[in-house]
């Protein structure tokens, strides 16, 4: 039985070795409400035809890490066996009273806040495991917030492959060039995850770095 299992493992390894499909995990990470789940759904729909994450105007809708494995990513002739990871929005504090203000009963608001804190802690720890980090930034806001600067600094220190996405370019107040000038040493891809603009540039960038 053990010999059979070993043979199976060996065959799997050999088939992976000869397969041209490289495996990579791509993790969408960033501040709250930067459009991570909207982008996750866009990528998931483009390659699998189905949604991946729930999307909401209320912050902290994604409160746990969501993984979609074996996404057959195929762009510009490059094939990847992708694990797409959507993560809870990173925040340094969570005020449950804000949820109450948005019509959620207090006990549910507290529960939502507790789940969100646990999710953020998991997302922070998960950073160590990712192959490619796609850092989402809201192009309508200045990129000098502590979350973005801390995430970028940590990814640089850990020498992680990183792509910055300047999202929400469909909005008139978007300033993706400000993000480009703040992080000149990184690839910055302006997109609208909602409308799909710039999405092919992001796919080309993932194919290049993964």
């Amino acid at each position: 039985m053990i010999i059979a299992t070993n043979h199976l493992l060996m065959l799997t390894s050999i088939s992976r070795f000869f397969s041209k499909t490289k495996q990579a995990s791509v993790c969408l990470i960033g501040e709250v409400n930067t459009g991570k789940s909207t982008l996750a759904n866009r990528i998931s729909n483009d390659f699998t035809g189905q949604d991946m994450s729930a999307v909401s105007e209320i912050a902290h809708e994604t409160r746990d890490i969501i993984k979609l494995e074996h996404v057959n990513f195929n762009t510009d002739g490059k094939k990847l066996d992708l694990t797409l990871v959507d993560t809870p929005g990173i925040a340094t504090s969570i005020d449950y009273k804000e949820f109450v203000g948005q019509g959620i009963p207090e006990d549910q608001a507290m529960q939502r806040a507790k789940e969100a804190t646990a999710g953020i802690i998991k997302a922070i720890k998960f950073l160590e495991e990712v192959d490619v980090a796609v850092v989402m930034m809201d192009a309508t806001k200045t990129p000098f917030d502590q979350v973005s600067l801390t995430l970028m600094g940590t990814l640089e220190m850990n020498k992680k492959k990183t792509i910055i996405v300047a999202n929400k370019t469909d909005l008139p107040e978007a300033k993706p060039d400000l993000i480009k000038s703040t992080f000149p040493q990184h690839t910055v891809i302006p997109i609208s995850a909602l409308k799909g603009e710039g999405i092919n540039d992001l796919y080309a960038s993932i194919a290049e770095v993964a």
Binding site: T92, S93, Y96, K114, T117, Q146, L149, T150, G153, E156
Partner: peptide, 27 residues
């Protein structure tokens, strides 16, 4: 360091309660 600031973020959320909701940081 960025990693220590990230650790502070995580530790602030580990301590989350009705009276302590994390930290704010600014350069």
């Amino acid at each position: 360091t960025p990693s220590l600031r990230l650790e502070l973020t995580a530790q602030g959320l580990v301590r989350f309660s009705k009276t302590f909701i994390g930290i704010k940081m600014q350069f």
